[in-house]
């Protein structure tokens, strides 16, 4: 991978700036506000609680009800607030990815509500949403095997790059691969892709994504530890 700069000044394998705040919503058990470049995301986790209607219950594990929604004002043209095909699909696959991390088998016959709202979108919202949701679940104190660190990688203008923004995504030869890893085990829990790519580039893109996910994981860890300062004044 070359060290050329991209239009927004980033190197090819550099993430957009990420900032994380935890516990932003007093009504939720756990919550997270995440800014990822120009993406802003709020994620809340509630539960586990009894599931209704009862026929949806699973006797062996908790059901994760993951809702990915985009606000009407999150994109330049108004988005209809009605959940479309895209919203439902992303909700389903992200819910499965989060299920790999949360120890759902400890709460049979219940549901864990995960609500993610995209306030502002600039490509890569599903990975930002999943990163925020896993932080909110950890903030809610749910038992987990690890954290889900998600990142997109792909190709734009013939170069393999990490963390595509809207400009990169709109290039004619764009490849956008959304990935999520269960960290620190490095298990792949989400893989979606747009565009055409050969086998060799595909594995290269996955390698880049894993490196990016490790950076995201360090930021997630830092945010969780910093929420609870061990010393300092009590107020």
């Amino acid at each position: 991978m070359s060290q050329n700069k991209r239009p927004d000044g980033r190197a090819t394998s550099q993430l957009r700036p990420i900032s994380i705040r935890l516990g932003v919503n007093k009504n939720a058990d756990g919550s997270c506000f995440l800014e990822w470049g120009k993406n802003t995301v709020v994620a809340t986790v509630n539960g586990p609680r009894p599931i209704f209607p009862k026929h949806l219950a699973d006797q062996t594990k908790a059901v994760i009800d993951y809702k990915y929604r985009m606000a009407c004002f999150s994109v330049s043209e108004r988005k209809s607030p009605v959940p479309g095909k895209r919203d439902k699909e992303i909700s389903l696959v992200s819910g499965h990815a989060l299920e790999a991390a949360v120890m759902v088998e400890q709460f049979p016959n219940t549901v864990i509500d995960v609500n993610v709202l995209i306030l502002s979108a600039d490509a890569g919202t599903r990975v930002a949403a999943l990163t925020a949701a896993s932080l909110a679940a950890a903030d809610a104190g749910l038992p987990m095997r690890g954290l889900v660190s998600a990142v997109a990688a792909g190709r734009a203008n013939g170069e393999l790059i990490l963390d595509l923004n809207k400009e990169d995504e709109d290039t004619p030869d764009a490849v956008d691969m959304a990935t999520a890893f269960l960290m620190p085990q490095r298990e792949l829990v989400l893989l979606q892709m747009d565009g055409c790519v050969n086998k060799k580039d595909c594995s290269k893109i996955l390698e880049t994504a894993l490196k990016g996910a490790e950076v995201v994981y360090e930021l997630q860890k830092k945010a969780l530890v910093e929420k609870y300062p061990m010393d300092g004044e009590i107020q």
């Binding site: 586990p48 749910l142 969780l224 609870y228």
Partner: peptide, 21 residues
């Protein structure tokens, strides 16, 4: 398995959670 405070001695470990159901 949770976000919590590690309680570690020579022959025993557990984690005291900071939040949870």
């Amino acid at each position: 398995s949770v976000l919590g405070i590690l309680n570690e001695s020579d022959d025993f470990v557990n984690v005291v959670p900071l939040n949870g159901p």
